[in-house]
Design a protein around this nucleic acid. Structure first.
Length: 118
DNA sequence: ACATTGACGGGCC
DNA sequence: TGGCCCGCCAATG
């Protein structure tokens, strides 16, 4: 049960740890699974406790990179073979269509964000 | 109690 | 695709 602050933090980190290499999830998806709070709360947790988990596997809903440390994140993506979409503008973003992960062990049931489809 | 802020999201143009 | 605006939710000053 996610009642107090500490439990919430642990719940978030636990979900992030389940995301396998080469795949990513979003702040919103995590908030969705937890059923409480919102994407911003998840972001707040990652800001302070993200270092303890593979934070680069948590991106924004549009596939853009998590703020800061994008250099490190890119290295990790190349190493893990995370599907990326290169943009003419020079940057890139995660290809959520392929790398998206919302299939938590039996967190079950909670539907994937509709924004993820084609 | 009110205003501001943020590792966010979605609708619109 | 990209930028802008508004809604969200909790923490802070």
């Amino acid at each position: 049960m996610v009642h107090d602050h500490d439990d919430y933090v642990e719940a978030v980190l636990a979900l992030v740890e389940q995301v396998p290499p080469g795949r990513v999830t979003t702040y919103g998806a995590i908030a969705d699974v937890l059923g409480v709070g919102g994407p911003r709360q998840v972001g707040a947790v990652m800001r302070t406790h993200g270092a303890a988990v593979p934070w680069w596997r948590v991106v924004r809903a549009d596939g853009t990179l998590p703020p800061s440390h994008d250099e490190e994140a890119v290295g990790a993506y190349r190493f893990e073979g995370t599907p990326l979409l290169v943009r003419p503008s020079g940057g890139f973003r995660i290809d959520l269509r392929q790398a998206g992960w919302w299939d938590w062990v039996s967190g079950a049931g909670l539907p994937a964000p509709t924004s993820v489809d084609s």
